[in-house]
């Protein structure tokens, strides 16, 4: 198996920070807010590996820092410290050492992100097809009919009615918007895809279809994914391995079925026990 992403000692503090931030926060102290300076320690000393074609789950409640992890990796936010290396065939990139243009290049050409809020991932001012076209145009595809064709294929793949591809995403249901977002993220066949609470707030039946789609895509394209969720059901169905976070720290990690059936940490035991 080939490694695609290696994250080491990632930390992210919102606020000015002080020497006590990491000492005075964390799951043991039951807070992520530094009592001395009021900064929020979203992530502290997080390390993880991701292999080609693997789905890694990051599970935690609100405030655990799980979304911050993918936002840092997708360059939506800048980490306070730490390293992340992206292995792309024979090339490797020190993600946090790249300049803005290099970051944008990776975002546009090698990474995909699907947000909980479709407004973050889609431009609601242009048609669904146009949203996908944008990503293809970023990849220097300059042939209108090819772009149309590819957009149609992607929407078909994600089960969006292609006769609606010229409509604005605002006309669509939440589940449909997520499908368009997934189609957009996949437009360039990214080897690495981040999914941030993609099924939260959707009807159960719609959730199931989206999860099914994600899994199919992973198997078809061997896409490596990090799936951020507070939903145990989502990791159970999607992730081979799972990381459990609380107040910015990893408190447990392992194979997903082991985490769910034999959780080691008191917090995870409580989380699993309280799930429906």
């Amino acid at each position: 198996m080939e490694k695609i992403l290696e994250v080491r000692n990632l930390s992210k503090v919102f606020g000015k920070g002080c020497p006590n931030c990491f000492i005075k926060t964390g799951p043991d102290l039951d807070t992520n807010i530094c009592p001395d300076c009021g900064s929020v320690v979203a992530i502290h000393d997080l390390s993880l590996d991701l292999y080609k074609g693997e789905i890694l789950g990051i599970m935690g409640e609100s405030g655990s820092g799980k979304s911050t992890v993918v936002k840092n990796l997708f360059f939506d936010q800048e980490p306070t410290s730490g390293r992340a290396t992206f292995f792309d065939d024979d090339k490797q990139y020190d993600l946090f050492g790249l300049n803005a243009a290099q970051k944008r290049h990776l975002r546009n050409h090698r990474f995909g992100m699907v947000y909980q809020n479709p407004h973050l991932g889609l431009n609601f001012g242009i048609s669904s097809g146009g949203n996908i076209a944008e990503r293809l145009l970023m990849n220097d595809l300059r042939n209108y009919s090819e772009i149309r064709e590819r957009a149609r294929e992607l929407l078909e793949r994600t089960e969006v009615l292609t006769n609606r591809m010229d409509e604005l995403p605002g006309n669509f249901s939440g589940g449909m918007q997520q499908r368009v977002q997934i189609a957009k993220a996949l437009a360039i066949n990214p080897p690495l895809l981040f999914l941030d609470e993609v099924t939260t707030g959707l009807d159960l039946s719609v959730q199931a279809k989206i999860l099914d789609l994600i899994l199919e895509i992973q198997q078809e394209m061997n896409t490596a994914m990090i799936v951020v969720t507070h939903d145990l059901g989502v990791v159970r169905l999607l992730a081979g391995r799972t990381i459990v976070m609380k107040y910015g720290r990893i408190i447990e990690s392992g194979l997903t079925d082991q985490i769910l059936e034999d959780p080691q940490h008191a917090y995870t035991q409580r989380l699993v026990a309280s799930a429906l």
């Binding site: 243009a101 048609s127 990503r135 145009l137 209108y144």
Partner: peptide, 21 residues
């Protein structure tokens, strides 16, 4: 930033939308 990086894909999307319409 977009100019600096010669990132004009969104302008091209505008053209795309024009042709669609």
């Amino acid at each position: 930033i977009m100019h600096g990086e010669a990132d004009y894909s969104r302008l091209l999307v505008k053209l795309y939308e024009d042709i669609v319409q």
